[in-house]
Structure formats: C-alpha cells, structure tokens
Design a protein around this nucleic acid. Structure first.
Length: 199
DNA sequence: TGAAGGATTTGT
DNA sequence: CAAATCCTTCAC
C-alpha cells in the first residue's frame, strides 16, 4: 500500500484518483514541473486551483464526451489542455476514477525555477508572472500538443507533492456562465500570485 | 455547413 | 469596458 500521507516526491495517478473537489485543494503547495525538449525545466508552486466534475454544468464534459474533452473521461493523471478565447491555453489535471469526467484547473503558480539562461524580472513583477491560467501556460510553453499526455516524472509535465500551505481560502470559480455558485476554487490565502478577484 | 460563444488577458 | 482570435459545439 502506498498511502499518500507525507506529501513528498512525485504525485502518482493513485494520488489523483479522487473527486476533483478533494484533489484541487490538495494540489495547493505542490510543484508543477515542465520539461522542455532541450532538457531544461520550469518549476512552479501551485497556489490556485479549481475543480470541475460530473453533473457540473461548468465542466467541459457536462453534456457529452467529445474529441476535445475525452481525456477527462480517462484515468487520473491525464493532461487536459484547451484553447480559450482563441488565444490562451489552460492546463488541467485529470482526476477521479476512469470513466468519471473530472479535472482540476491549475490557475496560478509561483515560479520557483526557470530554464538556464532565462532572465526573470525581479521583485513584484516576478511574483505575478504565472498569476492566471493563460499566463502560466504561455510562460511554461504549454499548449494543446501536451493534451492527452500523462503527468509523469519522465514526461514533459509532472507533479510533485509539497508542504500543505498554512492557510487556504475556498470560494466560487471565476469566469463562468454556469455553476457560478459552486465553491470549487481554492487558493493559498497569502500568495501574491493568486489571479484576480482574490477576496 | 454555418454561427455563436468561451474555465482569459491586456490595454484603453 | 472591449478587442484579440480560433476552436468546439450545436443547430439547421
């Protein structure tokens, strides 16, 4: 038995095979790792997430299974990336049991490490480089070519457990036209990288 | 085959 | 507050 109790090391699919509203707050404080084709990597601390699940009108898989959302019906640990407003990409972690359409949207990161040679701004500017789902995908070079891959330590994207944040705020999700009252957004209360509307 | 609209960001 | 911009989904 591999109980996930110490929040150390790589996040295995078993750690994600739970309902999205359980996984979403657990991912706060964890690390997203993006490996580039040249071997360099980005690392970021997850500070804001949202959950989407079955029976949820805001979920892309609410109506039916389609070519775009099919990875959400697959096993936990899948990567779901979609293009929004024709401009921005959004990164999701597929959760729950195989056959249950659900995912956690990664909405904001604190940048921990950049590829060698990439000069990051200092101070306050750097704080918010990845403060938003579209911004973090642009920075980490994440697009739809990574959708339907799998979070894994040998893959372009992986997740690592990290310390539980001191304080977490739970509230409603952002930018939706449906399911606006479902409180499935979580963020690290004190993080400067949380996206807009942090109340 | 066409049209409406979106889990966003940025600048006016 | 509106533009940017294109893919997905649903209607006809």
């Amino acid at each position: 038995m591999t109980e996930v109790v110490d929040r150390e090391g790589a996040i295995a699919p078993a750690g994600l095979a739970r309902p999205a509203p359980e996984v979403a707050p657990d991912l706060l404080g964890c690390t997203l790792v993006r490996r580039l084709p040249n071997g360099q990597q980005w690392r970021g601390r997850i500070v804001e997430t949202e959950a989407y699940g079955p029976g949820d009108p805001a979920c892309h898989a609410y109506r039916r299974r389609t070519p775009r959302n099919r990875v959400m019906f697959g096993p936990a640990g899948g990567v779901y990336v979609y293009l929004i407003y024709g401009i921005h990409h959004c990164l999701n972690v597929v959760t729950d049991q195989d056959g249950v359409p659900s995912a956690v949207l990664i909405r904001a990161l604190e940048v921990l490490d950049a590829p060698a040679g990439v000069g990051l701004p200092l101070g306050k500017r750097r704080d918010r480089l990845a403060a938003g789902p579209g911004k973090l995908c642009r920075l980490f070079e994440i697009d739809r070519t990574l959708s339907e891959t799998h979070f894994d330590p040998t893959a372009p994207l992986s997740l690592e457990w990290g310390p539980t944040p001191d304080a977490i705020t739970q509230t409603t999700r952002i930018g939706l036209t449906q399911g606006v009252d479902t409180p499935w957004r979580w963020y690290v209360t004190t993080s400067p990288a949380v996206s807009k509307y942090a109340s």
